[in-house]
Write a protein that binds this DNA or RNA. Structure first.
Length: 575
RNA sequence: UGAGGGUUGGUGCAGCGGUAGCACGACGGGCUCUGAACCCGUUAACCCAGGUUCGAAUCCUGGACCCUCAGCCA
């Protein structure tokens, strides 16, 4: 039951593109203007260019939705290109996880799967061309010297003594670099631009460096690897990208992007920068995320508290919810911090229509119905999803002994509490009206059981002939038939809105980000729920079957998000 | 103090010279066999100061504040 139905990728893209039609942003303005002026012959070609050195997170999802969404909307194509120019940090495991995550999000790059490393030969050729044009040189300064010579934000840099090497010498040196005749750090290839440029990026940036390590795709073929600035613009050019969309921290690099393409006189895409996503109460920098994983603060990249795509997936988020979220937060150039309430809203919105309802008691309180026959079990009809009648009905066992939520009973209820209390009558969802008569306590005074009576005339949860009304409906699970299992609840990983802003972001970790509940009582039909399936536990929230810790016959559940809870709000506001 | 980006309700995004709008949130009400969902309503914003104009969030000038850049990372 409740298997995770995913729309085929193409369909997902089309549907979302239609939804997006309403909202406008500055990138669309640019594209539409380009379409009008015929700047790129009416083409729209984008790319999502991850470096395979880590897992994708919700910030990448924003970029993925943007790039694939734009391509779909303007009948273009979006390429998936791995920016694998630094073999020190990259590996195939990441390549695979990235592909899985993009696919899971519902996007299809078709045949357009590329690797910057596939262009290494051509890139090498471009480098030689630059040298021949007198626009690049091999520098033999040490890394420290290069830094010294670069100058500072306020002072211009100085030219390297090797800057004026003749073309022939540069050519020979560069060939030797590629042939492995120099050690790492001994020399680099630099663009010859302007050491006094006000934009530091333009002070003779490094184009190639020596790295005597194997590359996960090209093996031992190379010992020199191109830098981002050199590889990226040329990869875009080779693939005939029209709009190369990246985040704001690359604004300064655009001047270099343009310089390289102009110097080589090749096809020239347009780089456009937008603000990266920041989400409240979490961190979205690869470096920090890696730290959480490596220091064992979380259980891995797919820990449900992680803002990684795999984390959200395991937590119980859906691709549609994440896509909708990305559409709604919009795209702009100013730094912002998005409220997680927005994300949670998108999940609820999606799951409300698609997730089967089910009853589960997280913190059980036993109830005995004194006037219900001992040993009797009857099956009552429950609706699978009131939002979607086509999802049908199911039978739920009811008997003399069952569990309700501890929170649903109060011995001395305050004014606005209208659930169960001594002497009070409530409805059991789809079952009967019951009235509480006695409270059984143990030696410590802890409530261990409620003694109630039921009204047979309210079978199915219907109002009795005398028209008696009840102010609350509770969920419940029959004791003997209940599935006994674990449920995990999650809260923000951090206690402050913007942990990245604090001195040490780990200082503000939330010690209560994970709560493991054992002995939860769920309706028996859940016994064979498939890993990854989504459910709404009525009155509680949306839960998913954990894909890692569940075993056949004993699914373990993760709470993805709570339902909106007016009662909790009343309590918090102090009645 | 160099260069480049940015500043619209609590949050995110529109508005591109003509009554400042959408979503989320918050608050109130309706409906309800989920205190959910749904429906209805309320709240609340143009960084500041000048200027241009019949009219400025939009154009101009000056200022304030925030962000990015000194990797052989991306």
């Amino acid at each position: 039951m409740g298997n995770d139905k995913q729309a085929p990728p193409q369909e997902a893209q089309i549907i979302d593109a239609e939804q997006r039609l309403g909202s406008s942003n500055f990138i669309r303005h640019i594209i539409e203007e380009d379409l009008e002026t015929g700047k790129f012959d009416g083409r729209v070609e984008t790319r999502f260019p991850p470096e395979p050195n880590g897992y994708l997170h919700i910030g990448h999802a924003k970029s993925i939705c943007l790039n694939f969404g734009l391509a779909a909307q303007y009948n273009g194509q979006c390429h998936l290109r791995f920016d694998d120019t630094n073999p020190l940090k990259e590996n195939v495991e990441y390549v695979e996880s990235i592909k899985e995550d993009v696919r899971w999000l519902g996007f299809d790059w078709g045949a357009h799967e590329y690797f910057a490393s596939d262009y290494f030969d051509r890139l090498y050729g471009f480098a030689i061309e630059l040298i021949k044009k007198g626009r690049a040189y091999v520098d033999s300064l040490s890394p420290d010297q290069i830094r010294e010579y670069r100058g500072t934000l306020n002072e211009p840099g100085r030219e390297s003594p090797y800057r004026s090497r003749p073309v022939e010498e540069n050519l020979q040196l560069f060939e030797k670099m590629a042939a492995g005749e120099f050690e790492e750090g001994q020399c680099v290839l630099r663009a010859k631009i302007d050491m006094a440029a006000p934009n530091i990026v333009m002070r003779d940036p490094t184009l190639y460096r020596i790295r005597k390590v194997q590359h996960h795709r090209t093996g031992k073929r190379w010992c020199i690897y191109p830098m981002y600035d050199f590889a990226h613009c040329l990869s875009d050019s080779i693939e005939a990208i029209t709009h190369s969309i990246c985040t704001l921290e690359f604004v300064n690099n655009r001047e270099l992007y343009d310089w390289i393409l102009d110097a080589l006189e090749v096809y020239h895409p347009q780089q456009i920068e937008f603000a990266r996503l920041n989400l409240a109460y979490t961190v979205l920098s690869k470096r920090k995320l890696i730290q959480l994983v490596e220091e064992g603060i979380v259980d891995g990249w797919d820990d449900p508290r992680m803002p990684s795509i795999s984390g959200f997936r395991r937590r119980g988020y859906t691709p549609a919810a994440i896509r909708r979220f990305c559409d709604r937060i919009g795209v702009a150039k100013r730094d912002s911090l998005v409220d997680i309430a927005m994300l949670e809203h998108c999940l609820r919105e999606d799951l409300n229509t698609s997730a089967p309802r089910v009853m589960g008691v997280l913190r059980p309180l036993k109830v005995v119905i004194e006037n219900y026959p001992e040993g009797q079990v009857e099956y009552l009809e429950a609706v699978n999803n009131p939002e979607d009648p086509s999802m049908g009905i199911r039978q739920v066992p009811f008997s003399r002994e069952f569990y309700i939520e501890r929170d649903d009973f109060m011995e001395a209820p305050p004014k606005k509490f209208f659930r169960l209390a001594p002497g009070r009558e409530v409805r059991l969802r789809y079952a009967y009206f019951i009235r509480c008569h006695d409270v059984v306590k143990d030696d410590q005074g802890e409530i261990v059981e409620l003694r109630c009576t039921y009204d047979p005339e309210t079978r199915g949860g219907n109002a009795p002939p005398d028209g008696r009304k009840v102010k609350a409906t509770l969920h419940w699970v029959s004791a003997a038939e209940a599935l006994d299992t674990d449920v995990r609840l999650y809260d923000h990983l951090f206690t402050v809105e913007n942990p990245a802003e604090t001195e040490d972001f780990k200082e503000s970790l939330n010690p209560e980000s994970l709560t493991i509940l054992t002995g939860c009582k769920l309706e028996p039909g859940l016994k064979n729920a498939e890993p990854g399936a989504h459910f709404q536990f009525e009155r509680l929230g949306y839960f998913t079957v954990d894909t890692r810790d569940s075993t056949p016959g004993k699914p373990v559940f993760n709470r993805a998000v709570t339902l909106r809870d007016t009662w909790a709000k009343i309590q918090k506001s102090g009645k």
